[in-house]
Nucleic acid binder design. Structure first.
Lengths: 201, 201
DNA sequence: CGCTAAAAGCAAATATTTTGCGTTAAGCCA
DNA sequence: TGGCTTAACGCAAAATATTTGCTTTTAGCG
C-alpha cells in the first residue's frame, strides 16, 4: 500500500483523499460494485485517474481503504446498565451490521487487500469496543469475560458463519454469549457447548 | 458466476477448463498474483482471452474457482487411533495449510468472489472432514463433540485469527480443542475459557 | 519568502476488456 | 450412425482501462 494517513496530511493531498473516498461511497450506493471503475471514481471525485492509480494502485486497494474507514465504530458501545446486557446489545448490532449485504461487502473488501494491515485494524476496532464494555463492567465490580475469550468464542464464530456459511440466528449468538458469560456459572463446558450446538441447527 | 461444472461437462469445454485451471496454478507459482492477468493465463492455456472472459467474467472469479478446487481435501483425515488425536492431527494440518502464505491467498480468493457459494463449499469441506472423524469416534464408542460445536469453537477461532489477526500458536489451538473435548470433563466452561484466554496471549 | 520535493495533472503509449460474427463440436433424437 | 441444434470457442475490431514520461502545483521547511 502506498497511501498512509501520516504522509503529507494537510492540504491538497488530504482533499484528494477525502473526495476520492466520498466518490467511492456515493458510487457504491448508486451502482453495482462490479461496474465500479477507477476512471468513474476519478471523474466523480474531480481528479485524474492517474492520481488514483499512483496513490492506491488498483480498485481493490482503494475499496479496502474505504471499507476500513467505514467499519470504524462511530462511538462507544451503548451503556445499558450491566456488562452482560451491554455485550448482548453490542453483539446484536454487530451481527446486523456485518451480515447485511453492504456489511458483508465491506468485510470482503477488507480481506481482499493483499497486505493484512486492513484486516488487523478491523480486528482491533472490535477488540477496542469489547474492551470498553469490559472496563465498564469491571468498574461496576461485575465479573466479565476476557476480551480474547470473547474474540474466540463470540466474535469468531459469528464472523466465520457470516463469511463462510449462513448468517447466525439470534438464538445462536445468544447461546454463544451464554457460554462465556453464564448467568449461573455452574454448568460444565461440555454441557454448554452441547446447548450451543443444538441452537446452531 | 457463469461457469458451473454440470454444463456440458464432456469434451472440449472440460479440456479448456482444465487447461485454464492448470495455467493459473502454474503461473501463480512463477509470479506475483498482482502481475497475473487474463491474457497471460489465456496464452499459457492456449486459449483466447475472450473465452476466459465469457466463461469466468473476471480474474477474481477465475481465481476463486481455482482456489475452491485446491482447498478440496484430497482424502480422509488420518486415522490415529482415537477421535481426540485424530482431531488434534487434523487441526494441526489445517492450521499449517491455512496459515501459510499460499493458503491464506487461497482463502482470500474464495472470499473475494461476490457470490457466496465458493465460501460455502469450503465450509462444507471442513464439516465433512470433521464428520468423518466424528463418525469413526462414534463407531469406536468414544464420546465426541458435535461438528457444529467444533466449527464454532475450534475452526472459527482459528480461521478468524488467520484472516484478521495473527496465526494461532499451537498452544492456542490445543487449548481450543481441550475446551470442547476435555480429558477430564469436570471443569466449568468459564474456567476453561479463562485457560484459553491465557494461552492466547 | 523562496526552495525542495511530494503529489497532482495531462496526454501519449500500452494493455485490457468487450463485442459482433463466423466456426467448431457436444449433446440429442430419429 | 448421421444429421440437427446450440453452447462454447476463436478471431479481430472497438471500446476501456492502465501505465508512464513529463510538466505543473503546492505542502512543508528553513
Amino acid at each position: 500500500m502506498i497511501a498512509k494517513e501520516n504522509i503529507r496530511p494537510g492540504g491538497r493531498s488530504a482533499r484528494v483523499q477525502s473526495s476520492v473516498h466520498k466518490a467511492v461511497r456515493e458510487l457504491l450506493k448508486e451502482m453495482d460494485r462490479s461496474d465500479l471503475t477507477i476512471p468513474l471514481v476519478a471523474t466523480r471525485a474531480g481528479v485524474t485517474p492517474s492520481t488514483i492509480y499512483r496513490r492506491w494502485g488498483d480498485l481493490q486497494e482503494l475499496l479496502g481503504d474505504v471499507a476500513v474507514e467505514r467499519l470504524q465504530p462511530d462511538g462507544e458501545p451503548l451503556d445499558t446498565g450491566t456488562g452482560r446486557s451491554d455485550l448482548r446489545a453490542w453483539v446484536e448490532q454487530f451481527v446486523d451490521e456485518m451480515s447485511s449485504a453492504p456489511g458483508r461487502a465491506l468485510v470482503r473488501d477488507v480481506l481482499a487487500t493483499p497486505d493484512a494491515t486492513n484486516a488487523g485494524k478491523c480486528c482491533s476496532f472490535t477488540k477496542q469496543q469489547l474492551a470498553i464494555i469490559a472496563k465498564r463492567a469491571e468498574a461496576r465490580g461485575e465479573p466479565f469475560a476476557d476480551v480474547d475469550v470473547l474474540m474466540d468464542y463470540v466474535v469468531a464464530p459469528i464472523m466465520y458463519r457470516i463469511l463462510f456459511d449462513d448468517v447466525p440466528a439470534p438464538a445462536h449468538y445468544h447461546a454463544l454469549i451464554d457460554v462465556v458469560m453464564p448467568e449461573q456459572p455452574q454448568r460444565t463446558g461440555l454441557q454448554v457447548a452441547a446447548a450451543v450446538g443444538s441452537a446452531a441447527r
